[in-house]
């Protein structure tokens, strides 16, 4: 598999009156053609900012730094705004969380679908229109040709998200970034949209980065998973490995929050992770999760590195092996709740 995107030590910081908010604190990952990488984490962990940083669409006061962001062999850090505009919507496309508000209410679906491809590829109006109809049909929209003349307010949320997906695929991107694409949709529509993204990925052989807080979504679509906490990737690996052997206490805590059919008894309380996410303003040494972790010891406050516990399964935890040994067998169940927050 060829690597489509490779990110090294990406940092996003936002200067505030109270100090500098380090929203993304040195993360590295890569994603290959045909592969789906899921970035998982709770609200505010920096996953959406990561995606915006890749597109260089961060809010103007946010600052992006990285050692390297290599995409299709080119270093995105060296591209100016002009060069980036040629990448955006062309080889790297994005779908957003809010299908209801992500389409411009003043223009028809057709107009919004076609403008990107007319800009990036040298195609005629007719060719752009044919491509739009082809993709609308691909994303499962019936009577595609007549939809082109419709306005966003005439479509349901599920249909709008399908339009957004078709729009992202207009130029045949190498990388598709999906930022919580199903969060705003009904559960039944969610499943359809996820299926659709998977199918299209196979058909167009794209790399996909899917950002979500929903582990159910991860289990369904991911090839590899990166769990984010407080702006860092704290655990990453192939999906089976992460689900069968969650190692970082935070990942374990997340797993405990999901009800398991047949295992979680009726009326039983679901797991919670005690404590709150630390302030991300200013510098932080040691493990960001230490103040909530049942296994935290003095070593956790020392600077730490990410290391592999088995090849391809990386954990950012100083006591990863010990935690794994302690929780082996019992796994998941109830280890974290018993601990009191520091």
């Amino acid at each position: 598999m060829t690597t489509t995107l490779s990110v090294e030590n990406l940092r996003v910081s936002i200067p505030l009156s109270a100090g500098v908010l380090h929203a993304v604190r040195g993360i590295s990952f890569e994603v290959a053609r045909g592969e789906t990488l899921c970035l998982v984490g709770e609200s505010g962990c920096g996953k959406s900012l990561t995606s915006l940083a890749l597109m260089n669409l961060l809010p103007s006061r946010a600052k992006r730094e990285a050692d390297r962001i290599s995409f299709d062999g080119a270093d995105l850090l060296k591209l100016g705004e002009r060069g980036m505009a040629k990448v955006r919507g062309n080889t790297m496309a994005m779908i957003f969380q809010e299908p209801m508000t992500s389409l411009n209410p003043a223009y028809t679906i057709g107009n919004q679908l076609e403008e990107g491809i007319r800009l990036h590829k040298n195609v005629s109006a007719k060719e752009a229109r044919e491509r739009a109809i082809y993709l609308l049909e691909k994303v499962g929209i019936t009577a595609a040709a007549s939809r082109l003349g419709q306005y966003p307010h005439q479509l349901s949320g599920g249909l709008r998200q399908r339009v957004m997906i078709a729009m992202a695929l207009m130029c045949g991107p190498d990388l598709l970034i999906c930022d919580e694409p199903t969060t705003a949709l009904d559960v039944t529509i969610q499943a359809q949209i996820l299926h659709l993204i998977k199918d299209l990925q196979r058909e167009f052989d794209m790399a996909v980065i899917l950002i979500t807080h929903d582990l159910g979504v991860v289990a369904r679509v991911a090839d590899r998973v990166a769990v984010m906490y407080a702006g860092e990737i704290i655990e990453s690996g192939v999906v089976g490995e992460i689900f069968s052997r969650p190692t970082h206490p935070y990942t374990q805590g997340l797993m405990n929050c999901i009800p398991v059919p047949g295992k979680t008894r009726q009326g039983e309380r679901l797991g919670t992770i005690p404590g709150i996410v630390p302030s991300m303003i200013g510098e932080m040494t040691g493990c960001a999760f230490a103040n909530r972790c049942a296994y935290a010891q003095d070593i956790c406050l020392q600077p730490l590195t990410t290391h592999d516990i088995v090849p391809g399964h990386a954990v950012r935890c100083a006591r990863a092996e010990e935690v794994l040994a302690l929780t082996a067998g019992s796994n998941q169940a109830g280890t974290i709740q018993s601990g009191s927050p520091a």
Binding site: G89, F96, T101, S102, L103, N104, H120
Partner: peptide, 26 residues
């Protein structure tokens, strides 16, 4: 600051296109 302006930028449209076509009309 609306989502559809972000969408327009994500398509790679030029700042002028974003401003005059997508933002100003609304």
């Amino acid at each position: 600051s609306s989502d559809y302006v972000r969408t327009a930028r994500a398509k790679g449209l030029s700042p002028a296109m974003v401003l005059f076509k997508h933002a100003l009309r609304n």
